[in-house]
Each structure stands twice: as C-alpha cells, then as structure tokens.
C-alpha cells in the first residue's frame, strides 16, 4: 500500500467513516420505523388480538420450519401470504375456520411427507393467530412474493 496511507490515517478514516455511516443508518432506520407504522402496515389495525396471535406464532416456534415474509427456515411453505393463497385475506371467519381445520389435521402421518406437529392452541389463541396472519398478509412488502405460491 502506498506511503500516503499511513497506519494512523487508515485508522482515522476507519473511525470517521464508521461514525458517518452509523449516523446515516440511524436516520434511515428512524424514517423506516415511521414508514412501517404509518404506511406499510397501516392497512389493518394492530389490535390486542393481532399481538396475541404474534405471541402464539412465537411460542410455537413456527419460524423454525416456515418462512414469514421470506425469513425463517426453508422446510415448510411461506406463511406471509397464506391467507391470500387460501383466498380468505378479507374474511376473518372463514380464515379462522380453515386455519383451525388445518391445524387440527396435523400431523398428517403420511409416510414420506414432511410432518407438521400438533400444537395445543385454544380457540381464543387460534382466532388470534388467524388474525395475525391476515394482518401480516396485508403488509406492503413491495410486491413480494412474486406469486401466490409464496
């Protein structure tokens, strides 16, 4: 490396530049936070029920088989658009019924097919889970996923 770039200079560029990028990043994060709350997830209110549903999703560690908005494990289907896939994104009651039916039918026990466990979920929690998934589905994800297959 050329002599103009001494060790001290390299160090100072490192510190100064890093601080600059941290500041820019924090500003953009704050703006993104506002965008999420005010715009991209504003299509449906974030009720107590939705929050409970998120808790049910977490308690059962669904993320370690499924993806949600493309993040998670890659062992089972995408869930961020499942309500659209089922055609019930705007129909809370049917959404709940289909979800409940699906969950009760697990594990399928079919030989050679990936198995989803049976979860102990109360009716209240199941309704909340269903609302959480409808809530997630209405998020403005910039057009992702490319199609209903997720």
């Amino acid at each position: 490396m050329a002599e103009i770039l001494t060790k001290t200079r390299a160090r100072n560029i490192f510190y100064g530049g890093s601080i600059f990028f941290v500041v820019v990043f924090i500003a953009l994060t704050a703006q993104s936070h506002r965008h999420i709350v005010k715009t991209s997830t504003a299509g449906m209110p974030l009720t107590e029920q939705v929050a409970l549903g998120k808790h049910v999703w977490e308690k059962n560690s669904c993320i370690n088989c499924h993806t949600l908005h493309g993040e998670g494990a890659y062992f089972a289907p995408e869930i961020g658009n499942v309500m659209t896939r089922w055609g019930v994104a705007d129909d809370p009651e049917t959404a709940y019924e289909i979800l409940d039916g699906w969950m009760q039918a697990q594990p399928s026990g079919i030989e050679g097919r990936r198995q989803m466990p049976h979860f102990e979920i109360t009716e209240e929690e199941m309704r909340a889970l269903s609302e959480f998934l409808r809530w997630a589905d209405q998020t403005d994800t910039q057009g992702w996923p490319p199609n209903d297959a997720g």
Binding site: F14, S18, V24, S32, Q142
Partner: peptide
C-alpha cells in the same frame, strides 16, 4: 484498519439487503 474500514462502510448500510420485502 483498511479491512475493517471497508467492512463497516459497506456492512452498515448493507443491512438494507434484508429490508427489501419486510414492509420497509
């Protein structure tokens, strides 16, 4: 110092590659 400078200059805003489709 050169290595870590390039790491942070790219990596901090590089977080953006996870912010494409999650509502950001």
């Amino acid at each position: 110092y050169v290595i870590v400078a390039t790491a942070l200059f790219s990596g901090i805003l590089g977080t953006g590659h996870h912010f494409y489709w999650i509502g950001t």
